[in-house]
Simulated assay, not measured.
Amino acid sequence: MNIGFIGLGIMGSGMANNLLKSGFNMYVFNRTREKAKELEDNGAKFCSTPKELAEKSDLIFMMLTDVRACRAVSEDKDGFLESLSKGKVVVNFSTVHPNYSLELREMVKEKEAMFLESPVLGSKIPAQKGELVILSAGDKEAFEICTDAFEKISKKAMYLGDVPKASYVKVVNNEAFATSLTAYLEGLAFAKKIGLDPEMVFNILNSGALSNPYFEFKVKKVLNDDFETHFSFENMKKDLGYALSVADEFKCYCPTLAAVNEIFKKGLNKHAKEDMSAVYKIFDE
């Protein structure tokens, strides 16, 4: 089976590499070709356009930053929709607005192809280790076709039903994660400003009800002044915007979400390319 992978950034590079190591025949596309060099060196074939990639692939996988990037590789000149045909499968791993997933599904259907929205839980290291969690919604047949590939890049893949259920779950996940981690880091900055040792406070919090392996990973890096990007500040701000939009659409009262969105908005210009945990710096200024 030929797999085409579009988007070789922090997440996509690890995912594509795991598929390649598992023996799939891989075609790749990235706006910046240098990011494909390691994959090419290991046997992947670089395509000059998404259109070419879709011509040669049975499964077209995307892992991109946002809706704009997805539109560029699908709808623009030489986008993959130009060569998409009956029986092919499009899987969008990107975190996008749920309404865009509905729109993309219809464009794919017009080509008599199948579509899955499949946002993932996990960031850089789980992507590299093949330990993501995949949330899929869309064509059930497509999910079954992709099962073998999904097993190579995830520890669990779940089929949730119709589009955009997977996008809704991802929005809820990122809202809950961003608000809770922001509160945790605010607490550590608060502790520091009143004269407590943040590491000591963290060790106490981590021994009780607030123990959380991902918080532990993030906080240890913060305490070491390490803000290497695993999930960028600007991408979390984008996802908080999606969550607010969905909340407004369904008339949900989400004051914590709104407050955390404002905090990320405040730090966006200064911390955009850093890890999302750089929200700590806003409280520590």
Rank of each mutant, 00 (worst) to 15 (best):
A142K: 01
A178R: 01
V246I: 13
D226W: 07
K56A: 04
E249W: 13
E52P: 02
N42F: 12
P98D: 05
M1Q: 14
L160Y: 09
A176I: 09
C70R: 03
D148R: 13
K265M: 02
A183F: 10
I194F: 13
F46T: 11
M107H: 12
E103S: 13
N42H: 12
P255Q: 00
A149R: 08
S94R: 10
L102F: 11
G241C: 01
N2G: 09
F80C: 10
K218H: 10
I153G: 05
C146R: 07
R31C: 07
N30W: 08
K129E: 11
G12W: 09
F61G: 00
N212W: 10
I263K: 00
K220W: 12
L81Q: 01
F283V: 01
A166E: 06
N99F: 15
L240K: 05
G138E: 07
E228W: 12
T32K: 08
T95M: 08
M11E: 12
D225N: 14
N269S: 14
K35G: 00
P119C: 03
L102P: 10
P213T: 05
F233Y: 13
V133K: 06
D41S: 11
E144G: 03
A191Q: 06
Y214M: 10
F264K: 02
K265Y: 12
G138P: 10
K155S: 06
E186A: 01
A113G: 04
R105H: 11
S207M: 06
P213W: 14
S167H: 08
N99A: 11
M1G: 08
N174T: 03
K51R: 08
K140W: 15
D76C: 04
G7P: 13
V133L: 10
G161Y: 09
L8T: 09
